[in-house]
Amino acid sequence: MTNVGIDKERMEAVTSSRPTKRFKDFMSKLWKHRKGKAGLIILFGLVIFALIGHFAAPYNPLANNAAAFQPPSHAHLLGTDYIGQDILSWFMVGTGTSLVVGFTIAILSALIGVTVGVIAGYFGGKIDDVLMRAVDVLLVIPGFPLLVILQTFLPPTLETTVLILSILGWPFLARVIRSQTLTLKERQYVLASKLSGLSGMQIIFRDIIPMLIPIITINAIFIAVGGVVAQAGLAFFGLGDLRSVNWGTELYYFFNQDGIAYKAWWWLLPPGIGIIILGLGANFLSNGIFETTKPQKGG
């Protein structure tokens, strides 16, 4: 056996971080995928739009110093609403709020869902039984009525809305993750890790969760869209924080402040189209992720 000296270069090679490279590979693959690319562009576009709105909206969305119910004009590209607020500015700022709402709900739901799913799937037994019964209970309760009830009794802030939606968002993900974990833990390399002395948590982070990332991402994207829509829906019914500027409150005011009577289509269309674009982008992206990460045959 040759006794090889250790040079710096090799040490760096074996200890350098690999995940960044994998992420780059993944992104370049996704970029080559037609739908994946479309999804990325759409969602990225929405974020840029929201950022511009945050820093450089043409007016303060809550400033009501213009005439009410103005159709689109040079001064107000998307017209004004019932008290003369600029709809474009409202929509831009509202896009930001809605995206943050969706993103936060997705992160929180994914955190809970993945934790519950992986633990139930990997450890099994009693833990599994208890966690899955809890999931069953949450899944059988009709979601929207429960939302309405909870929102009615809890303080009407955006934070509570986000929290409620997060708590209702994870059970389905937990089920998906659990069943994937059940398959993954039968792989021989999990047994090999066990024999290498790794603990259950170490194995979960090394052999289980990395394999779940595509499926978590796809589900999180849908939870985010669902969250945005649900929040908008609640606001539409006048629930939650109605002073917040977002797509949902825009719809609420349209319907409650004579938007229909004035035939103010310029007021209704932006949030509607926003939701459609978000859904479309999310669908394209998750489709792209699914198709670029699905396991290929052979070595």
Binding site: R22, Q188, Y189, R206, P210
Partner: peptide
Amino acid sequence: FQDPYSSLNPVVT
């Protein structure tokens, strides 16, 4: 192990 394809984690060097 038997299966050289399933006994190594594909994302671990």
